[in-house]
Computed example of a mutant assay.
Amino acid sequence: MTEAGRRRGRNETEEERADRMWGELIQEVRVAQTGVQILFGFLLTVVFQPKYGKLETVDQVIYIVTVVLGACATGALIGPVSLHRLVSGRRVKPQAVRLASRMTFVGLVLLLATMTSSLLLILRVATHDSYVPYLVAAVVAWYLLCWYGLPLWARRRHTSGTDESP
Score class of each variant (00 low, 15 high):
M1H: 11
A4P: 00
A4F: 04
G5S: 14
R7T: 06
R7S: 02
R7E: 02
R8C: 07
G9F: 13
R10C: 15
N11S: 12
N11P: 04
E12D: 09
E14H: 07
E15F: 04
E16C: 15
A18K: 02
R20G: 09
M21A: 10
W22G: 09
G23C: 07
I26V: 12
E28I: 08
V29E: 01
R30Q: 08
R30W: 04
T34H: 10
T34P: 07
G35V: 02
Q37W: 05
Q37S: 11
I38S: 06
F40D: 01
F40S: 04
F40E: 01
F40M: 04
G41L: 06
G41I: 08
G41W: 03
G41H: 05
G41R: 06
F42P: 02
T45F: 10
F48G: 11
P50R: 02
K51P: 05
Y52K: 09
K54F: 12
K54P: 09
K54G: 12
K54V: 11
E56S: 13
V58W: 04
V58H: 07
D59C: 11
Q60E: 07
Q60Y: 01
I62M: 06
V65L: 14
V68I: 08
G70F: 02
G75T: 02
L77S: 02
G79T: 00
G79P: 02
G79K: 00
V81Y: 07
L83C: 04
L83A: 04
R85A: 00
R85M: 01
S88Y: 07
V92G: 07
V92K: 08
V92R: 15
K93Q: 07
K93F: 03
P94E: 00
P94F: 00
P94G: 00
A96T: 05
V97T: 01
A100L: 02
S101F: 05
R102P: 07
V106H: 03
G107K: 00
G107T: 05
L108A: 11
L108H: 08
L111F: 13
T114Y: 13
M115V: 06
T116E: 10
S117N: 12
L120G: 05
L123G: 06
L123M: 12
R124H: 03
V125A: 14
V125G: 03
A126N: 06
A126R: 12
A126D: 03
H128W: 00
D129T: 10
S130M: 07
Y131D: 13
Y131Q: 12
V132Y: 07
P133A: 10
P133Y: 14
V136Q: 01
V136K: 03
A137I: 12
A138I: 05
V139Y: 01
V139M: 03
V139E: 01
V140G: 10
A141F: 15
A141C: 13
A141Y: 15
A141W: 09
W142H: 12
W142D: 10
Y143M: 13
L144M: 15
L145A: 14
C146F: 09
W147N: 14
P151T: 03
P151V: 05
L152E: 13
W153Q: 14
A154W: 12
R156G: 14
R156M: 12
R157G: 11
R157K: 15
R157N: 13
T162A: 10
T162S: 15
E164F: 13
S165K: 12
P166Q: 06
